[in-house]
Design a protein around this nucleic acid. Sequence first.
DNA 1: ATTTTGACGCT
DNA 2: AGCGTCAAA
Length: 886
Amino acid sequence: MARYQFSDHAELRAVSHIDMDCFYVQVEQRRNPELKGKPTAVVQYNPWKGGGLIAVGYEARARGVKKQMRGDDAREHCPDINLVTVPTAHGKADLTIYREAGAEVVSILSRKGRCERASIDEVYLDLTEAAKERMAHVPTNRDDLHAEAQKSHVLGVTPNVSDASSWLVSRTEYSEQLLAAAALIVAELREAVRMEARFSCSAGVAHNKMLAKLASNMHKPAQQTLVPLAAVPGLFEELPLKKLRQLGGKLGASLENQLGLNTAGDLMRVPLERLQDMHGKNVGMWLFRISRGLDDDPVNDRVLPKSHGCSKTFPGRNALADLPAVRHWVRQLALELDQRLETDAEQNGRFARLLVASVSYHTEPTLASPHGVSKSCPIAYGVDRITADAFGLVRRVLSDCQAFYVTSMGLSATNLQATPEKTASITTFLRKVPGKQSAASDGGAPTGSETTDRGEGETALDEEGNGGLRGQVAADEKEGTAQIEGERGGGSGEYAETSTGGEARRKTEVGARKVKRQRSPLRDWLAAASGPRPASKVISTGGSEGKGKGLEREVLAGTATQSDALKAEGRAASEPAECGRTGADDPALQSEELRGDEIDGQHALEGVSCVERGPDSTVGEECEDVQLTLEEWIGDRGGTDSRSAAADPEHASCEGRGRTSENEKGAASSAEVAGVTAEPTGLSDLAKSGHADRLDLGGELGEGNVAIEDRNNGEEKADSGFEWKGALAETATARQVRNRVEAPKSLEALWQKAAVPKTDVQSERTVEDQAGASREGRRSTQSKTRKRSLDGHVADAKEKLQKLWSKAPSAKDETGPAEVGSGITYEFDWQEVDQSTLDELPLAIQAEIRAAQRLQMQRQQPKAAKKLEKAQHAQSIKPFFQRKSR
DNA sequence: ATTTTGACGCT
DNA sequence: AGCGTCAAA
């Protein structure tokens, strides 16, 4: 029976999953070599019951220490255990050192094939190509195998055969040859990790991610396991279902409870139709396939995380009960997040676009599980702005509550984009041309070296994976290697130095995708952008000559703000229309939306945005928030005073060194301001306005003409020391105002409201956001009709249910309509709802129905109730993935 | 009172 | 956009 059907050899992949052994413990042992070989665990926070264990070393595991223990429990099992506390910063656990160590490992493991960072300490590798090449060179003599490869475990072969060597060298089946070759590569990579980073790791080698992941966990620590195709049926027959990736949670439990399955083999015997009936077409098919060892989930080419997040819990009494406390902790989180974002921007040229604030809270002291809510807005870099925006988001959630008890908060920055060349960031849009003298660095800038290790012609943000960057990384790695070897040669302290200088060097030299650079325009800008800024500064992104309308000109010139623009439309600036517009009746917004990313099919420049970025800003401040001033851009460079820099008469023009493309020309020809499309604005036009500081990126993008107008005298200056790097940091998308008129309502508030009969269920009025407004010195008044949020529907559903179930116990009226917010009416008998009807209902209703059924069962047959509860729990899971097919 | 992450799917 | 699920140290 052909269980495994691979149409031909070409489709067979060689995939490895590599997982560090008790990673945090190893990191700590490398930091403090005295811990090596001793029972060690890493804990988070000490005071309460000795802290929570998050990693346990193998010596400690041997003594019965388990990860779910508290520090105190661990001490009981193993009195001489070394408990290392995770570093803290900003009053919270800070995992930076582990992230950096993880990046170190990734930089090594990504050498031989496509590499996907699966977590802080795991990667998947697609070694298909490398293994194919390697197949021709697999030794025929088992003694010539890499020692680490010899120690491989081969499922279905070892330990019956004493070691894997003979298996590895004598394969005849293509699939096995491929795995054998991959195993040699993996052995070498693991050895490289051991030598260069001094970490041990375990690996699985198979034809897909699922099997590789399974295998990497089978022989730990410091071993590797191969899964030949033929081994799968035997393996799965005994394998608990939960061991398969994605089946460790509710889905796996539901399979066990509903179908009585215990092993993966059991799952294999369930007909596809049954699986699809139960879990939908996609999940059903996915289950069918993984139960046969089939998995086409590709190894993605991604070595960097897609988001940065930080969070903190405030359990029990520590719950935050007032806004100042909330604000304080928002700021602490922002401090960490900002640092991590800046580092990412420096090292990887990436910028986040979205800020998400999550908060879990109670409205009264209770043991019930808290409500979790998240809100998001476009992100603005800088601690203060992240703080202000995130606090605004959180406040929006809490402002309706008479009382709140915040049990956890988190910030995360997502939508990280490696700003591509043609929409490059304003933060990187100019770069000092090495060796070229410039006004800005005149005056003996002491630290102003902008030199990078790149060749002159290369950009900081070359297309991903191009030779320039790769080459650099490779060179760095080589240096790092040399450095380590030097240390080893030193003799005595092979590890002695590592927690100090050696590690620091490796950090910069071996880190993944890191580029050595001490200073950069980016860094300067980020630093400057975090500080206070003068009002009404504008960067104009003008193309060739052109004239804007009067108002637009003013805005460009920096005296007008968006509020002026709004006034000109006959609206008072203080009116709440401001930035939250979502209505199609708003001309400014329309053009704002139209502004978009594309003009003439190309990325548009956005020289000025007056779009509010966070929930707190008001109109007058918005421009200020998003402008890049002359001082900000120039002022911090090398400590040189901006005015003298700008006043340097030497450089009346500069030659661009960057690329010029049709795209960029198109982009340069238009700029949007305050939601109004501005015509290309020539330098001279702006110069005449004589108002404000500005940078005018004149001419075509890529040419690098930089004109600087001095605020004080309106004199036009130019600086030639820079290179045009592209367009803009913030794409239209990032600036789009989202949900600005979102009702600041908690679920509770909605629920309370829902108790009052409403005539208009399709819309509601937002309320004035007052809480904290005076402290902020701002007011944001919003009153807007909008579509109901999901929360509203849920609240409605709950209300209906309350009514419904209030009748239920008396059991007279057992069929009742449940009207849900959307207006759909469901009819059912709550005692006999069939599964398909139940599935149609909103989850909140499903949960209530199940609760009611249990309640009744409890009364009638207390024993059976428990069983029902378990089954219902399994049923209540939501489908959560949709497998992509390759 | 595990905590702090991070990816991804659903609606 | 916001929530839920799953997973790792």
